[in-house]
């Protein structure tokens, strides 16, 4: 009760982003709250094994040294002149055999930052990428002619079929999705949204996707990392 009053008193004029956790339903939330019931931890365990077997630990030491890293990604790379996702950052300096292994690494690295606020730096030379991502977020596309913003800004909290439309934040990825019965990446989630409006998804590794994900990260500022989250 006191908390509620405090929240009411301090709630800022500018809206605080709302984590998709709150819209996921009580069953998914209960799974996410209990690491022993969250199937994503099967991938976390695999990630720990890979951290050793792929030699990551040889240079980086314990995986705990990755605390804070996932909260800063996607990160603008001044040399490449574009934002890079955490997956790309890993893949550019170390070969990772397949996408399941990459998911496992993202899960265990993301977990190290759990509870830390997202801290995407969009200052200086990164700004144009943020603006490009923002423009994509507001651009209508596909046969249904809908922009991300139409659903995730304008209609967030309303229903689409059986699902509550969340604000569309990336802070829990990779997620264990019950519908997929597997851990899946942010890119997989975005593909579903894009196909949902009957548009052609951006290619993995494309500049558009990099800018859009960069914008999504910055748009979620104020939320904490929840990796690996659970969704219905």
């Amino acid at each position: 009760m006191i908390w509620l009053l405090l929240l009411l008193l301090v709630s800022p004029a500018q809206a605080q982003p709302r984590s998709g956790y709150l819209d996921a339903g009580p069953d998914s939330r209960a799974m996410q709250d209990d690491d022993t019931a969250n199937p994503a931890f099967l991938w976390v365990e695999q990630g720990k094994v890979l951290w050793g077997s792929l030699g990551c630990g040889g240079c980086h030491g314990d995986v705990a040294t990755m605390r804070g890293v996932a909260a800063r990604y996607p990160k603008y790379d001044a040399v490449l002149g574009r934002p890079v996702s955490l997956a790309r950052r890993i893949a550019t300096h170390r070969a990772v055999p397949d996408s399941e292994d990459m998911l496992a690494l993202l899960a265990v690295i993301g977990l190290q930052s759990r509870g830390l606020p997202l801290a995407i730096d969009i200052s200086g030379p990164a700004r144009p990428s943020y603006e490009a991502g923002k423009a994509l977020f507001h651009r209508r596309q596909g046969q249904l002619n809908l922009a991300c913003a139409n659903c995730h800004d304008d209609l967030a909290g309303r229903h689409l079929g059986g699902a509550v439309i969340p604000e569309g934040h990336p802070n829990g990825y990779p997620i264990y999705r019950l519908e997929w019965q597997a851990l899946g990446s942010l890119e997989r989630r975005l593909r579903q949204c894009v196909v949902g409006v009957r548009a052609v998804p951006w290619a993995d590794g494309s500049r558009e996707l990099a800018d859009l994900e960069f914008f999504l990260g910055a748009r979620a500022a104020g939320l904490v990392v929840e990796t690996p989250a659970v969704r219905p």
Partner: peptide, 8 residues
């Protein structure tokens, strides 16, 4: 994938 997680 790690095959099993057991908590006891």
């Amino acid at each position: 994938m790690a095959r099993t997680l057991i908590n006891v």
